[in-house]
Amino acid sequence: MSASDGVGRGAPCWVSLLTGDLTSAHNFYGAVLGWTFRRGSLGEEFSVALSDGKAVAGLGNVASSMGVPVSWTCYFAVDDADLVASRIRERGGTVAVGPLAMGRGRAALAADPAGAVFGFWQGAKLPDWRIGSGGAPAWLELRTRDAFAAAIFYGEIFDWAVDRPGRCEVRYEDDTVTVQVEGRTVACLRGGAIEADPDPRIRPRWHVFFRVDDVEKAVEAALGAGGAVVSEPVHGRVGREATLRDPQGGLFTVTERGDGC
């Protein structure tokens, strides 16, 4: 299956939590987002989160073994993982892990020149997993210093805006870059973050937004399950939202809107 089958080339195709305690993650996200879980195909250290019986995200108890912080990571669909890895290195990024054979495909973890971590995946993808649809993330957002420079980097490694079927469309306005697939906004790149700032909300990073029916109830559930509130509920750019931290340190945002950023 190519990246254009069901998921556009260079488009987000999955999100995964790299955690240090799978049981704790199950308890927390089950309470906050209502997820259930089944064992993943990669072994007992991996699981798949389900919403209404459909796969939403992956979880892996691998943060310690991989030497990475607990975090949500977004993956982008590619046709050739080795080619993308070469492009990343040529443009000042870093390939930290892989590409490695995993299940029905190959995966890698990398960082862009500003330090934001992301993944990419070559192989079969879930045909019904869509950003902004069902329990999948509402959208993804890169918070970085220079959105235009980031768009050039990601555009070149993922062939965004290249004139061929399945491509991602890119638009730039007011220091914000939006990435669209078939008219749906799936990701935003926003400028203004300071790389040296120790605050994880400000340092360059990809951020995952999950839709909930009630932000205040999600915040209450997060606190009751041992999490923390990083950003109190506010009316954001497209709706009410709050940024939370799970008990292991994973950051994510809950929002009452799921139709773009």
Results as ranks from 00 to 15, higher is better:
Thr185Arg: 06
Arg190Glu: 03
Glu173Met: 14
Thr253Cys: 09
Val170Cys: 04
Leu244Gln: 06
Thr255Gln: 07
Ala193Ser: 15
Arg190Gly: 06
Asp197Phe: 03
Arg237Ala: 03
Arg171Asp: 14
Trp160Lys: 09
Lys217Trp: 00
Arg245Asn: 05
Gly166Tyr: 06
Gly226Asn: 07
Gly258Met: 06
Ile157Cys: 10
Arg205Cys: 07
Arg201Leu: 10
Glu220Ile: 07
Ala218Met: 06
Pro165Arg: 12
Ala193Met: 05
Gly166Glu: 01
Val170Gln: 08
Arg205Asn: 10
Ile194Lys: 15
Cys168His: 06
Val162Leu: 10
Gln248Val: 10
Ala193Gly: 15
Val162Trp: 09
Glu256Asn: 14
Ala161Tyr: 08
Cys168Asp: 03
Asp259Asn: 14
Glu256Gly: 15
Leu251Asn: 06
Leu244Ser: 10
Gln180Gly: 08
Pro204Asn: 11
Asp159Trp: 11
Arg164Leu: 06
Pro165Lys: 10
Cys261Trp: 09
Ala218Trp: 00
Glu256Met: 08
Lys217Val: 12
Arg205Lys: 11
Arg211Lys: 15
Gly226Ala: 02
Cys261Ala: 08
Val186Asp: 01
Ala221Met: 04
Val179Met: 09
Arg240Val: 06
Thr243Gly: 02
Asp214Gly: 08
Pro198Ile: 11
Ser231Gln: 13
Thr243His: 07
Val230Cys: 03
Arg203Asp: 00
Val234Ser: 01
Ala187Gln: 06
Glu169Leu: 13
Thr176Gly: 08
Asp213Thr: 15
Arg245Tyr: 09
Asp159Phe: 10
Leu251Val: 04
Pro204Cys: 11
Gly183Lys: 05
Val254Arg: 11
Arg211Tyr: 00
Val215Tyr: 01
Trp206Ala: 03
Arg240Phe: 01
His235Thr: 01
His207Tyr: 14
Gly192Thr: 06
Gly236Phe: 00
Ala228Pro: 00
Arg164Cys: 04
Val170Ala: 13
Arg211Gln: 15
His207Asp: 00
Val238Ser: 02
Arg245Thr: 05
Ala228Phe: 04
Gln248Tyr: 11
Ile194Tyr: 08
Val215His: 02
Val186Asn: 02
Gly183Ile: 11
Ala187Gly: 09
Phe209Thr: 07
Gly239Lys: 02
Arg167Glu: 04
Arg167Lys: 14
Gly258Leu: 09
Thr178Phe: 07
Gln180Glu: 15
Val254Lys: 11
Arg201Ser: 02
Val181Arg: 02
Pro233Leu: 05
Val170Leu: 14
Phe209Ala: 05
His207Val: 00
Glu220Gly: 08
Leu244Tyr: 05
Thr253Met: 12
Leu189Tyr: 11
Glu256Trp: 01
Arg237Glu: 00
Val234Met: 02
Asp163Ala: 15
Glu232Arg: 13
Val215Ile: 09
Arg203Asn: 02
Phe209Ser: 03
Val254Asn: 07
Arg203Thr: 10
Gly224His: 10
Thr243Tyr: 07
Asp259Gln: 10
Ala187Val: 12
Thr253Phe: 03
Val186Gly: 07
Asp159Ala: 15
Arg164Gln: 13
Arg205Ser: 13
Val208Cys: 14
Asp163Tyr: 08
Glu216Phe: 02
Glu216Ala: 11
Gly258Trp: 01
Gln180His: 15
Asp174Gln: 14
Glu241Pro: 01
Asp159Gln: 14
Gln248Gly: 14
Asp159Met: 12
Gly224Pro: 03
